[in-house]
């Protein structure tokens, strides 16, 4: 194990995240952490890291990095188009980056957040026990800000054992954002039953306004039974608040820990990542489930990450000249 570094060439909206800054919500501190906790944990699992090791969260702004020293990395989630020294790789992939090699992630047709984990984890001094970046309060990551060109991420205990690129077999990341499961409440009673029905039966479109704090939805506005101001109470990850304009807002990793709008429902833990990965323009519906179903889905998620992740070598799509010549001859015959 030796130290290695990842130098950032570009990466608009990319941040360092661990599993979040927990235990300080009572003091107004936002937990932050990954937008898609399952994809984040999957990338770490593929490397044998602790599931909460600090990794790079990549937004649709993409990422471009150069290595100093050999380094195992795994990328999961978000359906990014990945290139390593000019070679296209699957979007969920693990490999050893050789020294001075270039890795780029570009947003794909689906998905919004990808995770670049490194063998041994990225070393960052924690703020209140966590490296998770929350830019609004300036906590975590590098000086509390998003990554930018010129940053160098340090990996003290770097490993380089994976070798050639391998596709990760992670079927649990094949999630369609069309149906998002919720538990109704805590303020479902702020809406008449017809409006709850409308919330569940009508389609909602993800708007381009979203960020790490919230996902803003468009559709037929919901009417409150008696006003849209409540005395502030706690906000859980995935809480769906409905402000005065009647359009639902799903509160995500960078949410404030308390707030004063009625919350009609809460996205279940297992569907947080599914929702986070929805690009602007995606239409979805909400489905109400029981606590029991939500817990079962959470249990299945956790079970998926217990065994080691299967890695399949990526077959090189570079053909020998002899083979190509053969193709040409056959082409010549049939032409």
């Amino acid at each position: 194990m030796t130290a290695a570094r990842l130098k950032i060439l570009s990466g608009a909206g990319a941040t360092l995240q661990d599993a979040g800054r927990h235990g300080y919500m009572r003091y107004g501190v936002t937990p932050a952490g990954p937008m898609d906790p399952l994809a984040f944990a999957t990338a770490n699992r593929a490397l044998g890291n602790d599931l909460d090791a600090t990794a790079v969260e990549v937004s649709v702004g993409g990422l471009s990095v150069v290595t100093e020293g050999p380094l195992d990395v795994a990328i999961a989630g978000g359906g990014f188009r990945i290139e390593h020294d000019g070679r296209a790789l699957p979007s969920n992939v693990a490999l050893t980056l050789k020294p001075d090699s270039l890795l780029t992630l570009k947003a794909g047709a689906d998905g919004a957040w990808g995770y670049l984990a490194v063998g041994g984890g990225i070393d960052v001094a924690p703020t209140l026990g966590s490296a998770a970046t929350h830019t609004r309060s300036g906590f975590g990551g590098l000086d509390g800000r998003a990554l930018r060109a010129g940053d160098a991420l340090v990996v003290d205990a770097a490993r380089a054992t994976l070798g050639e690129p391998a596709a990760m077999t992670v079927p649990w990341l094949d999630r369609r954002p069309d149906r998002i499961r919720v538990v109704l409440g805590p303020q479902a009673d702020a809406f008449v039953p017809d409006e709850i029905e409308a919330f569940l039966n009508e389609g909602w479109t993800v708007t381009a306004r979203g960020d790490r704090m919230a996902c803003f939805l468009k559709g037929r506005p919901l009417r409150h039974a008696a006003g849209h101001d409540i005395v502030s109470d706690g906000i859980a990850m995935g809480a769906i608040q409905v402000p005065g304009d009647g359009l639902p807002i799903v509160l995500m990793a960078d949410r404030q820990p308390t707030g004063g709008y009625p919350k009609i429902a809460t996205v279940i833990g297992a569907d947080i990542g599914r929702l986070a990965q929805a690009q602007a323009g995606v239409m979805m519906r909400f489905a109400a489930v029981s606590i029991e179903e939500a817990v079962n889905a959470r249990r299945a998620e956790r079970a998926a990450l217990v065994p080691a992740i299967r890695l399949e070598p990526v077959v090189r799509t570079v053909f020998s000249s002899e083979f190509l010549l053969g193709l040409n001859l056959i082409d010549g015959v049939t032409a």
């Binding site: 927990h22 235990g23 919500m25 009572r26 005395v231 502030s232 109470d233 706690g234 906000i235 859980a236 820990p257 308390t258 606590i291 939500a294 817990v295 959470r298 249990r299 956790r302």
Partner: peptide, 22 residues
């Protein structure tokens, strides 16, 4: 129980439902 958050009028109790049943 992972974290508690007092507000004006209610206490939010964050918990791991795989460890602690509702």
């Amino acid at each position: 129980v992972t974290e508690t958050v007092p507000t004006y009028r209610s206490l939010m109790i964050h918990y791991d439902p795989l460890t602690l049943d509702r």
